[in-house]
Design a protein around this nucleic acid. Structure first.
Lengths: 189, 189
DNA sequence: CGCGCGATTGATTCGAGTCAAGCAGTGTGG
DNA sequence: CCACACTGCTTGACTCGAATCAATCGCGCG
């Protein structure tokens, strides 16, 4: 499914925003020769359409069943805090893309997505399990890597006992602190 | 000069924003081991403090003499369009960091900065000259490259007759379309 | 002068990309 | 039911672009 990117009026600020209440959406841009970069992954609670901005050539595609509700633009405080969230995500991602190594990127992504898409845990002592809505190729386009490199990092983390997965999209976190250390650039592998 | 990053109220939306009327400011984040990433370069007319968001650990440093004026937060339309501009900049930069090669990044940066910091041209047939407010190291931290790679790209463009410079911070554009082609990933070198 | 800082240039290394199989799961049609 | 194609993931061998390491240069300054 492709969403049209018309959430705003012709020039001024938008009269309403769209809030994603359920699901996962990827916003991406593509260069002339086909190189693709996913600019943001939108999860439940976030606004679709801010990142789209006003006149940006941006493609949005849903990565799951999605439910979007209209939020009236009058709720300025709510909108403002959602914009701040989006900014924070993109800033953090900028650092990731500019300065982190491949394993650091993948660890960061796993932790980020696990927080935003974690399934309700049955018991508090269970390891958190979550659904990666992105395939390896989408992850690559989000993290500025190649599909193969992403895959290699996953198997490396799996072999190191940091994560586990049987189906490649359903991931269990086995050692969150170690992953965090890698994501922060404090650990070697 | 280091600016404190307190432009907002404790939790809600800010009561006022700060608009940069003159000069150039770099907003950056740094990883534990010292790797630095400049997240945005703020030029005249743009708001300082949006990108800072609410609770972001972000360093702002001026790269020139700067003049900042307070803009009251009530001017929502103006603020909104400034936010859109900032979003556009960061989105474009995300694509740059994730998917562009070193020469493409440098060409993009030169064109971006030339637009935002071009000196008034004496005559319309003159080649545009502008002041790079960033040194090679800052450019590297902005473009996700090493200082040396940035330098090499500059000399490469100079030898190819695309740009010229005597002092390394004052650049003349000699072939804007070719630079644009490189920036867009449509040309090889 | 001698020092320090920023930029340039060169030689070498290395991380991630590319190219190329191979494998499992899923669906389709004979 | 099986052969076949197709899609997404994994794995391995090799290449290459950019990082790193290391001089060197030029300039401003105490």
């Amino acid at each position: 499914m492709i969403l049209a990117s018309r959430a705003t009026g012709s020039e001024g600020r938008p009269h309403h925003q769209f809030r994603l209440s359920e699901g996962c959406i990827a916003l991406s841009q593509t260069l002339a020769d086909g190189r693709r970069q996913i600019v943001d992954i939108v999860g439940p609670g976030a606004l679709v359409g801010i990142v789209l901005g006003d006149k940006n050539r941006m493609t949005a595609e849903t990565l799951s069943y999605c439910h979007i509700e209209r939020q009236h633009g009058d709720d300025v405080d709510k909108t403002y805090s959602a914009i701040c969230e989006a900014m924070k995500r993109i800033e953090a991602h900028t650092v990731l893309l500019g300065r982190k190594t491949a394993p650091e990127r993948v660890a960061s992504a796993i932790l980020d997505l696990s927080e935003r898409f974690s399934r309700p845990q049955r018991a508090h002592f269970e390891s958190p399990v979550f659904n990666l809505y992105l395939g390896r190729g989408d992850l690559a386009d989000w993290l500025g890597l190649s599909l193969e490199t992403v895959s290699r990092c996953f198997t490396r983390f799996k072999r190191a006992g940091l994560i586990d997965f049987d189906e490649p999209e359903i991931v269990t976190l086995l050692n969150t602190p170690a992953l965090q250390a890698i994501a922060d650039g404090a650990a070697s592998a």
